[in-house]
Nucleic acid binder design. Structure first.
Length: 421
RNA sequence: GUGGAUGUAGCUCAGUUGGCAGAGCGCUUGGUUGUGGCCCAAGUGGUCGUGGGUUCAAGUCCCAUCAUUCACCCCA
């Protein structure tokens, strides 16, 4: 008999750990609302073709990391490894552009990639992100970056750095990659094996290589894409920078920043957690002006980002941003036996309808045991219910903070709780 | 897919040259009738990851395997 356990690279988020998620989700809601973005939720699985066409057939994600399976009808389905393509698919399918020229969307949900797990990398993980579809203006890029940045600021995170770059529009990049290949031809035999392979397939990725030899070659010989942008691309990038400056958002221009997904154009950016381990990318995004068209949609420009929840939690833990404060409850009711529960449960019910959180012990334990638990659960008040209380319909409300006790009829309980809240 | 490290109680971990499986925390109960925290006491809890092997004897040594974890890779 096989032991039942979670799948490798997945995690239960236990009751003891859920507060971290809820804290972040609350801030996300707040910031997205402040920016007037609307939430969108798409299914966790899609036709495999969506990702093959959207993300790029030769990207690592599609070529070796997807959970793909055939359903009973023989259709090839895939658990979503990213969310930009599904959101784009939804935009196209529901003809969003007929409703308004620009849509500002946000999402949060689980994603699936079959990679080897390590710190900051799971097989099921969660990302939040935004997509602004319908604007080609640099102002949209700046707003998206400002939004991404605001979330970390609002959460109180300190150790992070924003890197931005422009990889140009399609023509610019074609000219640049030709130039790169020409310039680096002489160094080609000195590159590592993977870089040799990438030389023809996707030479931009050489910038990502952590091999010191390759990094040195790139540093000494590779021209910067920023020196080879078209006039329009350069103006676009300059405007993005001006706006970030005006919003007092600190950034670093990093001409070696290239993204691994095929759909990006012009602006790319990444936010790195500077206190994280090897998996330090907290947030990655950029402009993708060709994706909608490639998915048979209208020729609509777009810009967005995705950010990892689990990595954010790691970064926040490293900075001690999660307080230990457990929620507690307004009242812990301690019925002494099942007859007392007949009285306690309706009483609790009416208090809950009045807006109080009330915990009822269901085990009929000793008073000492119940009070001990009430203390542990950080109850603000306790009340024992036994024979006297049932007979007189009065109880002793005890404050767990100052030990004060007041004797009250049941009907006066709600008012007493509000006074001490 | 490739390397390194680690698997003992719910959690964090001890366990000597191979010789009765332990501690702290937690949880339960009690310390005079129905009142928490502190203290004291008792109790609960383990297929020592799994399967082989060596041995009178294996948590300890050997082999295999699985899992976890960190790094490569990739990315959020």
């Amino acid at each position: 008999m096989q032991e039942l356990k979670n799948i490798k690279g997945t995690h239960d988020i236990l009751p003891t750990g859920i507060a971290k998620w809820q804290k972040i989700e609350k801030v996300l809601q707040k910031v997205f609302t402040a920016f007037c973005y609307k939430e969108i939720r798409t299914p966790v699985f899609e036709n495999t073709a969506l990702f093959a066409r959207g993300v790029g057939e030769f990207s690592d994600i599609v070529s070796k990391e997807m959970y793909t399976f055939n359903d009973k009808g023989g259709e090839s389905l895939t658990l979503r490894p990213e969310l930009t393509a599904p959101v784009a698919r939804s935009y196209i399918q529901h003809h969003f552009w007929q409703d308004a020229p620009v849509h500002k969307l946000w999402y949060l949900g689980p994603l699936f990639r079959q990679e080897r797990p390590q710190a900051g990398r799971q097989r099921q993980f969660h990302q939040y992100g935004v997509e602004v579809i319908g604007s080609s203006l640099p102002e949209a890029d700046a707003e998206v970056i400002a939004l991404a940045y605001s979330i970390y600021r609002e959460l109180g995170l300190k150790n992070f750095a924003l890197h931005i770059n422009s990889i140009g529009s399609t023509d610019t990049r074609k000219n640049y990659t030709d130039l790169l290949q020409k310039t680096l031809e002489a160094q080609r035999q000195d590159l590592c094996d993977t870089c040799k392979q990438r030389f023809d397939v996707n030479i931009l990725r050489l910038f990502d290589c952590k091999n010191p030899g390759c990094a040195q070659i790139m540093k000494n010989h590779a021209p910067s894409i920023l020196d080879h942008l078209s006039r329009e691309d350069a103006e676009h990038f300059t405007r993005v920078r001006e706006l970030l400056d005006a919003m007092m958002i600190p950034y670093e221009v990093n001409p070696a920043l290239v993204r691994g997904l095929d759909y990006y154009t012009r602006t790319t950016f990444e936010i790195k957690g500077t206190a994280l381990g090897a998996q330090d990318a907290l947030c990655g995004g950029g402009r993708y002006d060709n994706l909608l068209r490639e998915l048979d949609g209208p020729d609509t420009p777009a810009v967005g980002f995705a950010a990892g929840m689990e990595r954010l939690i790691l970064a926040m833990e490293a900075e001690g941003l999660f307080a230990e404060d457990e929620e507690g409850m307004d009242l812990y009711l301690a019925p002494m036996d099942s007859r007392a529960l007949d009285t306690a449960m309706p009483l609790a019910q009416s208090l809950r309808e009045a807006g109080y959180s009330v915990y009822v012990d269901l085990l009929g334990r000793s008073v000492k045991a119940m009070l001990r638990e009430a203390n542990r659960k950080k109850a603000r008040h306790t009340a024992v219910i036994g024979e006297d209380e049932i007979k007189n319909r009065r109880l002793q409300l005890k404050s767990m903070f100052n030990n004060s006790v007041s004797t009250l009829p049941f009907e006066a309980l709600a008012d007493a709780l509000i006074n001490e809240k």
